[in-house]
């Protein structure tokens, strides 16, 4: 474990806490893409298949349970909770995310570390996480003004993978045979997808104005 990875995990946790705060405090999920939440639940479920077979550390296991539990709770809440689901922007959240799932699964069948059930699903989860934010970014562009908590949620979600890139650079220089090309390249693509969001988020922070994504 290094400071970059710990910071990355804490930033990721922060993004989830901000999202939970928004939904529970405002009893609303307006501006949140249910499809992105479903993709993230799938990412965690397919990435942590080794939850009960490989014990790394208490921290690792606890964080995996937190990520799986919170993502499923958010999907459940947006689908089933009487008050929350009424505020879901279903007519704006129309990204065809099943194509993302299919494309990522096909890619995982072609590019993976080892042709085993667990490794293919791990690669699938890495590719899917890289594109999982797309429905959310599309929804933000369509829904015009973005409320603070939603903006912070997306910001922390993007920042965590950028910190992971620093972690991979650090591990590359400090560990002999460290090679995580699948995660590294996918992480670069994932962070690049946030580039324009980060730009508008910075502008809104600098001018102390409402976050506006151009349509």
């Amino acid at each position: 474990m290094n400071i970059f990875r710990l910071a990355g995990d804490m930033t990721h946790l922060m993004s989830i806490l901000v999202l939970l705060l928004k939904i529970y405090a405002t009893k609303s999920c307006s501006g949140i893409s249910l499809k992105t939440q479903e993709l993230y639940a799938l990412v965690f479920l397919t990435r942590y298949l080794d939850l009960f077979t490989d014990f790394i550390s208490v921290y690792n296991t606890v964080m995996k349970l937190v990520f799986i539990g919170s993502s499923l709770a958010i999907v459940w809440c947006m689908r089933m909770h009487r008050t929350v689901k009424r505020s879901y922007d279903g007519q704006l959240d129309t990204f065809r995310h099943y194509f993302l799932v299919a494309a990522c699964f096909l890619s995982a069948l072609i590019v993976h570390e080892k042709f085993t059930f667990q490794e293919i699903f791990w690669a699938f989860s890495i590719y899917l996480e890289a594109v999982a934010i797309l429905p959310q970014l599309v929804l933000l562009q369509r829904s015009g003004n973005v409320d603070n908590l939603t903006g912070q949620y997306v910001f922390f979600l993007g920042a965590y993978r950028a910190l992971y890139i620093l972690n991979w650079i650090y591990r590359y220089f400090t560990e002999q045979h460290f090679s995580r090309w699948i995660a590294c390249i996918s992480g670069l693509v994932q962070t690049a997808l946030y580039a324009d969001f980060f730009y508008y988020y910075f502008i809104s922070w600098k001018n102390n104005s409402k976050l506006q994504l151009p349509a």
């Binding site: 990435r47 790394i56 080892k114 490794e119």
Partner: peptide
């Protein structure tokens, strides 16, 4: 046969 290393990252 390089055994697939355990993924120690989240």
């Amino acid at each position: 046969e390089a055994e697939a290393e355990v993924h120690d990252e989240l």
